[in-house]
Amino acid sequence: MTTKVLSNLIAARIGMTKSQSETLLSSAVEVIVEALNEDKTVVIQNFGTLRVKERESREVMNPKTGEKRVTDPKRVITFAANQNLKQQVR
């Protein structure tokens, strides 16, 4: 399911216009990303939590060349599903 389909479905579900739900969806994404960018945890009720985690640098080896190097530390977005959602999906 793509963003467009999703926004259309939501529009149909609550009876708003497609464009309105598209703007709302994009602004929701915008707000979430902005918060994540500020290292905030984003709680989505009845769904789950998005949070930024730091990945430490580690030593990796290129399996082809056998070359070893150390990765840069990075920050990744992780999602933890709500318990209910986990059960529903399972």
């Binding site: 999703l6 939501i10 579900r13 929701a28 009720q45 959602l85 529903q88």
Partner: peptide, 18 residues
């Protein structure tokens, strides 16, 4: 409106993922 939308978003997501 935002509340209504976000609730619907979560519902829709849950439904699709189910």
């Amino acid at each position: 409106v935002a509340k209504q939308f976000l609730d619907a978003l979560v519902e829709q997501l849950t439904q699709a993922l189910e």
